[in-house]
Design a protein around this nucleic acid. Structure first.
Length: 374
DNA sequence: CCGAATGAAAT
DNA sequence: ATTTCATTCGG
């Protein structure tokens, strides 16, 4: 178990990220960002006893206090043997079987600011954490679907982390950076200078209420809530206060309430009103019907009511599955991915990196001073 | 040369 | 929308 799990077992990811090594939905013909080499990709980076870094990678060792990086470490302590068997979890990392995918011959010329050869920056620790928070599936769409709010939640969790809790991600970032450097030794981050400041648009969607909610969600996650329990807690959270319609997660959003709301599907009759009832700030005039949780519900079409008031919890009807008109669920899950657009190549799995850290953090490394003396 | 400002990383 | 880092730029 990851030591991170001591406090936040819920963040101990078990589900593969779409970018995980092993992801095989598409192949990517552009120069690979990260190595897909057959060999375990990380073992040789930083540990003593490897051909490349006989004394360990100083870049790496210098940044972290591994047992062996202590200058006072006893001389002659065994050097890590990279030829020894590595953990299965790491050895299992292999190049996915190449799935042939042929791009359509006539690809519409996309105006892409970044060419296909663009090399992305390595992610920093927070970005890795945030990515993992998303790919872990711990924050379901029902809890929060807005990436900006997920960012706020992620930041709140991040700030609540101790250094020890952040460490796996910092290590992972270091590893990613090293691998990036190894693959692109000449890469140079060249941010473009913008002549004018980007217009900071006033975003009403992200009011104080929404930020507060994001923080509360963070607290719930830090408290160990996840899955259905988290969803329920968040539902209670939302039930305690009238929230902006935009922040009702789409799958919890009410079915369209106003008959005047145009159906996004031409000719498609709207389902009857279910779920939370929109009103315009006059709760006492609203007749609250029974709440029927929808397993799949379309998000609120535009325009949406301003405020929603959830009914009391005791009016919930459990285990109800809404029958939706054909096509509904798809409408709001976003457009299907265009297969002609190459996916970002897989990045090293954070899980593997953290496992690697778990493996090496207690492994003695020859102190650099000793290595230099040899 | 040093602090401020800013882009870019994933979603 | 977030944090961190690499980079540039102004003084």
């Amino acid at each position: 178990m990851s030591f991170l799990a001591q406090r936040t077992p819920h963040l101990n990811v078990s589900r593969p990220s779409p970018y995980d090594i092993g992801h095989e939905q598409y192949t990517y013909n552009a120069p690979n960002y990260y190595s897909r080499a057959q060999e375990p990709f990380a073992l040789e980076w930083n540990l003593a006893g490897t051909p490349e870094f006989p004394g360990g990678n100083p870049d790496f060792a210098a940044r972290f206090e591994f047992p062996g990086s202590n200058p006072n470490f006893p001389d002659g302590y065994p050097v890590y043997d990279s030829s020894a068997s590595s953990p299965e979890s790491i050895q299992s990392v292999e190049t996915p079987p190449s799935t042939s995918y042929e791009a359509p011959p006539e690809r519409p010329k996309r105006v892409s600011r970044r060419g296909p050869d663009h090399i992305p920056r390595p992610r920093n620790a927070f970005m890795i954490f945030r990515s993992e928070l998303c790919t872990s599936g711990k924050i379901s769409k029902r809890v929060e679907g807005d990436n900006r709010h997920i960012s706020i939640t992620a930041a709140a969790i991040w700030k609540a982390f101790t250094e020890e809790e952040k460490k796996p991600y910092q290590i992972a970032a270091e590893l990613e950076k090293l691998e990036h450097k190894r693959l692109y030794p000449n890469y140079r981050f060249t941010p473009t200078v913008r002549a004018t400041k980007p217009v900071k648009r006033k975003v009403n969607r992200n009011g104080a209420k929404d930020i507060e909610r994001s923080h509360q969600v963070a607290q719930l996650i830090l408290a160990g809530k996840e899955g259905h329990e988290l969803e329920e807690a968040v539902r209670d959270l939302d039930a305690g206060v009238a929230v902006a319609a935009d922040f009702i997660p789409s799958e919890l959003a009410p079915f369209p309430a106003a008959p005047s709301t145009p159906s996004p599907l031409h000719g498609m009759p709207m389902p009857e009103i279910r779920g939370w009832v929109p009103h315009n700030g006059v709760p006492e005039t609203v007749d609250v019907p029974t709440f029927i949780p929808c397993q799949v519900a379309p998000p609120v079409p535009s325009p949406v009511p301003n405020v929603l008031v959830p009914p009391p919890r005791d009016q919930y009807v459990p285990n109800y599955s809404a029958t939706l008109p054909p096509g509904w669920p798809h409408l709001y899950t976003g457009k299907p991915r265009d297969p002609s657009i190459p996916r970002r190549p897989p990045t090293p799995s954070t899980h593997v990196l953290i496992e690697l850290y778990e493996d090496i953090k207690d492994r003695p490394m020859r102190p650099m001073a000793t290595v230099a003396a040899i």
